[in-house]
Amino acid sequence: MIAYLRVLAYLASLHVRSLFEYPGAVMLAWVSQGFSYVSVYTAIALIILRFDTLGGWGWPEMALLLSFHLLAYSMGAAFSFTQFRELEEVVRLGTFDCLLVKPISPWAYIVFSGFNTQYISHVVVAIGLMSWAVGQVDIAWSIPTAFYFLASLVSSAVLVACIITMLGANALVWVRSRYLFSTFFGFWELARFPLNIFPGVIQFVMLTIAPLGFLAYVPVAVILGKDVVLLGPAAPVLALLAGPVAVLIARAHWRFCLRNYQGAGG
């Protein structure tokens, strides 16, 4: 097991090293990504500062929601997004066949050999905003609260990685899967906002079929002591369960797709 983990860490380190062969491009990517998120958050802040609240959420609470959303997403996406977005190309070119004969799980190989350090700027922006927001909002911090905060963050990150894995895995059966990510990011943008501002249908979809409501809204609303739409008192437990349940579903979906993989040539 330890040897296996060492291989995974080695694969990740090789990818990181290859990225840093172009240090200027890496630095520019970090700066531009950070700038892009700061711009969007500034636009959202302008709305809230002009109207005072958005669905009962003030700017410090929204800042906590946005930072939680970005941090959980970047933690999950570092292990999944670019890897599974490119999977259709791997399938189309036939190179996925090579992964099937390697003495390592294809999923583990894809995830760790593509570990993406580009998300560092996401993490820096998220932690900076979160540090400010945590000091502004009214949370009665205790050890259980802090533990819940961290556990729900990990659960959200795992949820993101699982959804992206499932979307990408479709390429094994249908060859094309990249277009599904535009729909994913449609819901991902919605997940930046309190779910209570959306119509009931969208709330339902965001907590079931496209469960990105669990990415930030549910855990942050629980931490802030706000009522959670549709879930009510079950919200604290469901926020923690979202990640592990997503793992089980994603694992079954990945195995199904792998069993039905025939290559792009049919």
Partner: peptide
Amino acid sequence: LLTSFSLTYFLQGVIALFSGSL
């Protein structure tokens, strides 16, 4: 610059804030 990735993000950021789209 030999990279288009960063430029895409940069333009996205500028447009999000200054175009009035949001």
